[in-house]
Design a protein around this nucleic acid. Structure first.
Lengths: 272, 272
DNA sequence: TGAATAGTGTCTGTGAGACAATATTAT
DNA sequence: ATAATATTGTCTCACAGACACTATTCA
């Protein structure tokens, strides 16, 4: 069939002539938790935490998953992700970055579903609004042994864990694929999304200002250093660390006391 | 309606209850061209080049676009991208990296289409196979003035150009959006994809080994430096450059002569 | 008072920038 | 011989790693 004009062509175009697929957004909501220490002098330990939602419908009923939802045909991709986030958490205007698009053939048992995952960063302590009743924050502990990554997720309600294998993609030197080796609690391929997101955060913390999206408006340099340390998974020397962030933060007049030791000056982020 | 088991739920699940959308892959095929110099002693200049295809069907009939196609429901996302590439270029086993997923509401006049763009790197001089008759390599010249990026595409058949505006995304310090300001020749939002791909290559050239995917198997260090210089859009000092790549390349026994000057040793890539 | 963190000073070695010097070729 | 690029040497300066030292708090 031949068309003379674009209008004519579009008029006769029928989407139903093609295979059915769906597009969804899944959102990795990343924050920092404090794990309180017994000793009043010691600093709280910190760790990453993520928001998971317990599914009360099929598929994967009773398993946990990232907040997500189908793409509304009237919304742009990121707009749709923000919409989902607002529904699940009542959060607005937060940092959102497209992470990766997952499109394995059988990642969803219902039909062919392509998921564009987003990473959102917040300081969950600022979160005043009530969470959805099925939503829950989980603290993350990760352990890497060889090419296996073991992840433990702890919350007041339940503890979950999974294991993924990190595989260097063929013909690359810096791209990894994550294959799920063990996973009894999470729905879909969400373990992969979680790992990919934490990896992205880790990779960007040194050469961007991404970290300040996960921090409160004002913070001490020790707190900031702790976040760097859990992201990079190693201890940093104080001097070196302060040099890294020196031109990204400015002193405020506030001081944090109460720790049984010299109080710290609080800083805020300032673009250089 | 209540379901007892996942099987029962899936059996009654009807994809047609939801809005129609399509998923496509578009592929930015990036290579390097030599622009020959008049003086036999001088080095050839190099520039990026990309493969575009002239559309012979609606929509955007007679405009140029990136090689792309609908997602086959039986293929994974990357697998589908490789399939498209094989169809358009007869190329197999080449470097392919997911670039970004574009999902603006009206990016395709036919229906809601989400495009996961991939970046492919090759040395097009190695390309022995015949290209599709509508496909053509275009040399790229980019110029940045303020927040405007002017792009000129030259081929033996036709010259194209477009202008995009680079906009820092709100609440970020390192993410840009590209708004098309002027574009008479390219279909869809493909100017954005082109810019995003070149940007990705530029950003990764310093901290990954991505560049070797666009190089021939053996090359001189001057050639490699030229590629760095067009990617980074600045001259590099020889000494500094050689230090950067020193642990990524090894000498071969081959020597390149014929340039009216001291011949160069040819090197090959070796993972460090 | 002492255990703990906050914050600053400084030495040293590495590595990037800058530039100079030498090598080799085709015309 | 000359114009061009190829390749190596080396000086300097900035900066990161390492570590020491001082400051300050509260049970």
């Amino acid at each position: 069939m031949e068309y003379k004009t674009e209008q004519e062509f579009l008029k006769s175009y029928n989407p139903d002539d093609y295979d059915r697929m769906a597009v969804v957004n899944d959102i990795l909501l990343l924050s920092i938790s404090n794990v309180e220490k017994e000793n009043y002098r010691k600093l709280d330990e910190k760790c990453f935490s993520i928001l998971l939602v317990k599914r009360d419908t099929f598929p994967f009923k009773d398993k946990w998953c990232l907040p997500g939802g189908f793409l509304n045909v009237k919304l742009g991709l990121e707009e749709n992700a923000r919409d989902i986030l607002a529904r699940e958490t009542n959060l607005h205007n937060i940092f959102l970055e497209q992470l990766y698009t997952f499109g394995a053939v059988n990642r969803d048992p219902r039909m062919r579903v392509v998921s564009t995952a987003y990473m959102a960063l917040i300081d969950k302590n600022q979160l005043k609004e009530q969470l959805n009743k099925n939503a829950e924050w989980f603290n993350i502990k990760m352990q890497e042994t060889g090419d296996l990554i073991t992840v433990q997720l702890n919350s007041s309600k339940q503890d979950l864990n999974f294991v993924v294998q990190k595989i260097l993609k063929e013909s690359t030197t810096d791209k990894y694929e994550y294959k799920i080796v063990e996973n009894d609690y999470l729905a879909f391929d969400h373990p992969e999304i979680i790992i990919a997101g934490i990896d992205r955060f880790r990779n960007k913390i040194l050469y961007t200002d991404i970290v300040f999206n996960i921090m409160p408006p004002i913070f001490t340099l020790s707190e900031l250093q702790q976040v760097f340390e859990i992201a990079l998974n190693k201890k940093l020397l104080v001097t070196a660390f302060r040099r890294i962030v020196a031109d990204k933060v400015v002193k405020t007049k506030q001081i944090q006391t109460g720790g049984g030791h010299r109080p710290s000056v609080m800083y805020k982020y300032e673009k250089s």
